[in-house]
Design a protein around this nucleic acid. Structure first.
Lengths: 133, 133
DNA sequence: AATATAATACGAAGATTTTCGTATTGCAAA
DNA sequence: TTTGCAATACGAAAATCTTCGTATTATATT
């Protein structure tokens, strides 16, 4: 009933592609969804066909990024990796790549670009405290 | 003497690929370099052939990512986009993509992952001040 | 029951990126 | 000058990612 091909990808850390990431974000948001549901959100942002979305989600399942319930004719998909996990992975890549040696530029850049709420600011200040000596 | 093909890519914001990014980072570091020099750094990290590096750098020049001085037989390459510009672009992508809605998780994640020096911390604290109303 | 609708499966074409082999040529050393 | 090495040019294969058309089948509608 539940499928999750993971043949030969067990350990290999898998990097979602651009398209896969878009789909993951929709699934994280919804928790669980059918291809149709994902596609309806996707096509508002991107000009793409239904079978394209389907195909990518099928491939993602093969890769072990998604799991699907095939009990009914209309399959229901669920992400296998948490948003937090993937965020961490990408962040790590940035810090050890593009921002290596200028890590705090990433932090300040983020502070610049986003209007953070006073609450966010406080949260960050509080968070900073733990690093002082 | 100086080449920079920019045919038909004038406005199109160009996204460096994974491999291109690796090369850019070496060039930002060195300021200017030959293919050989770039390749010698690259192959310490990655199993790759000389002509592969050459080819990619040639393509990058066509794309307008690099400029090369062909006065001598051994060409000298230089990045055309600043590290800061690209950093900003990627950061922007993260904030509007993966981290949309949880922007401060990016900041806190960055604080976690890197051991920031006390100097960095102070800098960030100082920087934060400007956002408090 | 017949027909229409909607879903999956799947192969293959397209597009992009990456890798590599080979040809050509400049330059230095013998 | 001849030989050998190092550099570029370039095409094409390989690999990966994306898109799409078509076939098949389950479910709903009439």
């Amino acid at each position: 009933m539940y499928e999750t091909y993971r043949t030969s990808m067990s350990k290999k850390k898998y990097n979602p592609t651009e398209s896969e990431l878009e789909i993951l974000q929709i699934l994280w948001d919804k928790g669980t969804a059918t291809v149709r549901e994902v596609h309806e959100v996707l096509e508002q942002v991107k000009d793409t066909g239904y079978t394209t979305t389907l195909k990518i989600m099928q491939i993602m399942t093969e890769k072990g990024l998604l799991e699907r319930n095939t009990a009914n004719r209309t399959h229901i998909y669920k992400p296998l990796l948490s948003k937090e996990k993937i965020q961490e992975k990408f962040l790590d890549k940035m810090l050890n790549g593009l921002f290596k040696g200028s890590e705090n530029r990433l932090i300040m850049g983020a502070l610049d670009q986003k209007e953070l709420s006073p609450k966010d600011i406080d949260e960050i200040k509080e968070y900073l405290r733990q690093f002082e000596k």
